[in-house]
């Protein structure tokens, strides 16, 4: 599904290397988790994959089912099935949540040569998904993320993911700012989407999200590289001992 090879990324404005030869392969149907200290490059990785400006890829490749991602516009990546749930979703005054989401759905369908979704079907779909995520009708009516609490913004990201049905989902610290109940809702939302043809890259700081979304593989990212890869037990190790031991072990 997602294959990243020896990815080197610098900031465009400053001559600063962030990712320094990152390689990763997420197979179809799998959930991979990435954990790592603050500033290790986790968000940078997800932004580079989704196509945000400001980063320069100096080396390496990233492909989605063989298709070169780095060559595509952000909207083309989305239409190809890539989704990033943002760590800090922006507020967009004046753009209604529903208008935005319907435009997104139909833009993607159009790009894939599929017919538009009727407004009736769309409404039904969103209402059902919103209900599962405990998002009330009022939130749907408001402008995108405006006046949402931190937790509401994260749930809104998952709502978008549920409605857009991407095949490669990147979740960047979706658990931060969520209380236990909200985390459960989000995890249920993600789990409901798990399927053979869909993969997840779950970036998190804490093991607790991984209690709910059971990963197949856990990677430790430090200083722009994957320094260790293992099973779910790796997350537990981080939780109990912190990163220090792992980083020391890698350095040794």
């Amino acid at each position: 599904m997602l294959e990243i090879n020896n990815l080197h990324v610098e900031l465009e404005d400053e001559d600063k290397a962030i990712l320094k030869g990152l390689s990763l392969k997420v197979e179809a149907g799998k959930v991979h988790a990435i954990m790592g200290p603050n500033g290790s490059g986790k968000s940078t990785l997800s932004y580079v994959l989704s196509g945000r400006d400001g980063y320069e890829v100096t080396q390496g490749t990233a492909t989605l089912d063989g298709q070169d991602l780095l060559d595509l516009e952000p909207e083309e990546r989305a239409a190809a099935g890539l989704f990033q749930a943002f760590q800090y979703p922006v507020e967009i005054p004046g753009v209604g949540n529903m208008t935005f989401l319907r435009t997104a759905v139909n833009s993607q369908r159009k790009a894939r040569g599929e017919p538009e979704m009727s407004s009736g079907d769309f409404l039904k779909l969103v209402r059902a998904k919103a209900k599962e995520l405990n998002i009330d009708a009022d939130m749907l009516k408001r402008p995108v993320n405006v006046g949402f609490s931190g937790g509401e913004k994260k749930r809104n990201e998952i709502l978008q993911m549920s409605v857009l049905e991407p095949r490669m989902c990147i979740l960047d610290e979706t658990d931060s700012g969520l209380d236990v109940d909200a985390m459960k809702l989000v995890a249920d939302g993600v789990n409901a989407l798990r399927s053979e043809g869909r993969s997840f890259l779950v970036i998190t700081h804490y093991q607790r999200l991984l209690d709910h979304i059971k990963p197949d593989v856990v990677h430790i990212l430090a200083d722009g590289r994957i320094v260790k890869t293992g099973g779910p037990e790796l997350a537990i190790e981080v939780e109990t001992n912190g990163y220090a031991d792992i980083l020391a072990e890698v350095a040794a």
């Binding site: 196509g51 516009e73 909207e75 989305a78 967009i92």
Partner: peptide
């Protein structure tokens, strides 16, 4: 706002 623009594009809306 570049961040607004990117958010919309990242959801599949052409520039």
């Amino acid at each position: 706002d570049e961040d607004h623009l990117f958010y919309l594009r990242a959801r599949g809306v052409p520039e």
